[in-house]
Design a protein around this nucleic acid. Structure first.
Lengths: 202, 202
DNA sequence: GGTCTCCCCTACCAATTGGTAGAGCCCGTC
DNA sequence: GACGGGCTCTACCAATTGGTAGGGGAGACC
């Protein structure tokens, strides 16, 4: 692998785990077996490096999502596929999700960049939801807000390990499987267009 | 207000908005109209200050949640109340939610502390859910995992403003109301124990 | 062999960081 | 008026930060 790519990869892991502010170029270079100046040779500043890392992460995320079939007639398959992809990342490369979290912090400078890279997937997902909503195959009012809720739930369940600990569950492969199953059940119930039995809950 | 309390308040806002690493004691002192050494007089180190801020935030959050009636017979009221509390914070003091986000980052040193402060509320909520699950008044398998999903959804929808922008919605008071309404509908559908019409989605 | 480009290095820098040491001020108590 | 504690200050520090300037080696091309 090229030095350039190695830097990008290592930076992604470090930024995603310790945060951008929590990662110094010196420390990054040390784990790479390089000097800081070699990093600055490829990426003229830390900000530029961060942008490149965000781009890389967004691209990888987008590529992973590409395996989710875009078929407007079956929204549930898309939800299930997305959950599968996100949870695979949560085990194989948690730093990538951490970086997305970092890059989507309120007021983040790279949020727009991230948004742009994923705009295609967002649009496709929204479009599917809109059609499904219109056909009554999914419960909800606004496709964008529904997508937002879905995103929040999936990413939260996949990444909020400290909250999970607070609930008394230690993150492990076994509990992760349970978490995913419960998440899918939860999402399915939320999307199900069956008429609400308002008597029970009201 | 005492200087000690002013420092705590300002630090909460700053830590919650710019992050701990993104906030220097000098900058903090400047906005307070003090010198850094005055901060260090009350809080001997930045780490101690951060812990105090986390404690403060957790306490305020807990106090706000106290207005949510704990009544095991009506889980939905609790969910609705929690959403109301969280959304009020999102408008009145977004930094507080930002700080919770910061403090619950994976690997956070203060996560345990935060957990401890909110343990009572977590337990109560789980207990309510367990009873409701047993009685069939709520759909789901595991109370803790269900609570985890609920938390993820609510906090995500309330705080992920950049993701909201990515969906094409600009955060404002009006859209916030819509967001809340859609969130409540979403959660209600997810919790509703009505039998799933599996034909539709499968 | 000369030269050019790519790549990584040493050396250095100004600014900022969290933190220490200690002086001085204000105010209530004796 | 002396004293003492509570509070904020000036002065200073070592370490770390992101970044600049520029040297040198190794290989490709002529």
């Amino acid at each position: 692998m090229s030095t350039r790519q190695r830097i990008l990869d290592t930076a992604l892991d470090s930024f995603g785990t310790d945060g951008v502010d929590g990662t110094s170029l010196d420390a990054l270079a040390r784990t790479l077996g390089l000097r800081k100046q070699s990093i600055l040779y490829y990426y003229p500043s830390k900000a530029v490096l961060f942008e490149a890392v965000v781009d890389e992460a967004a691209t990888r995320f987008a590529e992973a999502l590409d395996e989710v079939v875009i078929d407007a007639t079956d929204v549930w398959d898309q939800v299930e596929g997305t959950v599968r992809v996100v949870f695979r990342m949560a085990t194989q490369r948690p730093a990538l999700l951490g970086l997305l979290r970092e890059a989507s912090r309120p007021g983040s400078s790279v949020a727009v960049q991230l948004t742009g890279r994923l705009a295609g997937h967002i649009d496709a997902a929204r479009h599917s939801l809109e059609i499904a909503l219109k056909d009554g195959r999914v419960a909800g009012d606004d496709a964008r807000l529904l997508l937002f809720s879905l995103y929040s739930t999936i990413m939260g369940v996949a990444t909020e390990v400290e909250v999970l600990r607070a609930m008394g569950i230690e993150p492990s492969l076994r509990t992760l499987t349970q978490r995913r199953a419960e998440l899918l059940r939860f999402l399915r119930a939320a999307l199900d267009p069956a008429p609400a039995s308002s008597v029970t809950l009201a």
